[in-house]
Simulated assay, not measured.
Amino acid sequence: MSDAEDDGFAAFVAARGTSLLRVAYLACGDEKEAEDLLQTALERTYQHWDRVRYDNPEPYVRRIIVNASISRARRRAIMRIIPMHTPPESAARETDVDLRHVLMDTLRALPPRQRAVVVLRYWEDLSETQTAEILGCSTGTVKSQASKALAKLRAAIGPEAAEGVIGNVRA
């Protein structure tokens, strides 16, 4: 790759790296694994930079992150049973910090595909069509997965708190 192409890739990583790391963290729920996912995605992107740099490379990287996260979760599920996190007692839900922990624990407990839909639709504020493209599925699948995931999130944090938190996720 030429120096100009290297500079273009470096500029892309500098501009979008933090956002992509957030996507990786929300997709897997673990800081170290998120760093690994992002590193893997950036490595694969760099290998194909001459092809993807002319299009918007960010959706390409997001798709690698989400697919890698789902694959890793499946491998872990085959090797062992993943423990489900239980939300803290209702008294702990009174503060925003505790509510955020409950939300993140519940997000981690979602199946990988549902977690990916929630992250892409509500944290990254992508449309159903964009989310479907990244995940390689239909918009109907995105809608049904989002509905199931949001129902689980609402059940975990309570309906009144869910409207405040889930309703403000796009903000």
Rank of each mutant, 00 (worst) to 15 (best):
L20F: 07
I78T: 00
H48K: 15
R113A: 14
R22Q: 13
T86G: 10
I157Y: 00
V117P: 02
E94C: 10
Y122D: 12
K143R: 15
M1R: 05
W49G: 01
M1W: 07
R75S: 11
T131H: 02
D30Q: 03
R170I: 15
T139Q: 14
V97N: 02
A10R: 10
A4I: 13
P159H: 14
G158D: 03
I81F: 13
Q114G: 03
A116I: 04
T18D: 08
W123G: 00
G136A: 07
S138F: 09
E128T: 13
Y54D: 09
L150R: 13
S19D: 12
Y54M: 11
T95E: 09
D36S: 07
Q114W: 02
L42C: 00
A15R: 14
G136H: 04
S2G: 10
Q47I: 13
K148Y: 09
L20D: 03
A116M: 09
Q130S: 11
R51Q: 03
T18E: 09
L153E: 03
R108A: 09
A92W: 09
R53S: 06
E58H: 06
E31M: 06
I82Y: 06
V165E: 06
A4W: 09
A132M: 06
L120T: 02
E89F: 06
V97P: 03
Q39S: 14
D3G: 08
G167V: 10
I134D: 00
